[in-house]
């Protein structure tokens, strides 16, 4: 387990999943890829298939229709994996908490490791969040 985790931290590949968001969080995630922020410096790469991913970035307020798909996607991601919830919607559904189509918060369905608040969080915040996650996991593996 720990060796796998350790290998994962060298160059985490992220997959981005939106479950009924307003798009802003998703665009900010894409923004991280572009020249100004350029997360590839840290070895992070946005991948197109969940089967290649190590980190799942999840946004949005957990809409009924897409949560079904999200659950299935989570089953397909190779474990161990890390899950990061990006944005107020993914944290607590924000403004959409009373909506008829957003029944439960995401972290009741998928276990979340790190929460990045903000509506939307700035790209800097997203990068910082992922880096913190890596640090944390690294420390916990080193102890063992």
């Amino acid at each position: 387990m720990s060796i796998k985790l350790k290998a994962l931290l060298k160059s985490p590949w992220v997959f981005h999943l939106s479950t009924g968001s307003c798009n802003n969080c998703d665009i900010e995630i894409l923004d991280c890829l572009t020249p100004r922020f350029d997360i590839e410096r840290f070895g992070m790469l946005l991948v197109g298939s969940i089967k290649h991913a190590d980190v799942l970035l999840i946004t949005g307020s957990g809409n009924r229709k897409s949560m079904e798909r999200a659950k299935r996607l989570y089953e397909q991601i190779p474990k161990p994996c890390l899950v990061v919830a990006v944005g107020e919607c993914a944290l607590s559904r924000g403004m959409f908490i009373h909506s008829y189509n957003c029944p439960v918060p995401i972290d009741k369905v998928i276990p979340v490791d790190v929460y990045i608040p903000g509506c939307p969080p700035k790209p800097e915040a997203i990068i910082a969040g992922v880096v913190k996650l890596i640090e944390k996991v690294r420390k916990s593996t080193e102890k063992k």
Binding site: T19, G20, S21, K65, S66, M95, F96, S99, N101, C102
Partner: peptide
């Protein structure tokens, strides 16, 4: 479609 439907029209009434 509908993967993004959040019922905003209803929420707005509240």
């Amino acid at each position: 479609i509908g993967y993004n439907h959040r019922g905003i029209e209803k929420l707005s009434e509240t």
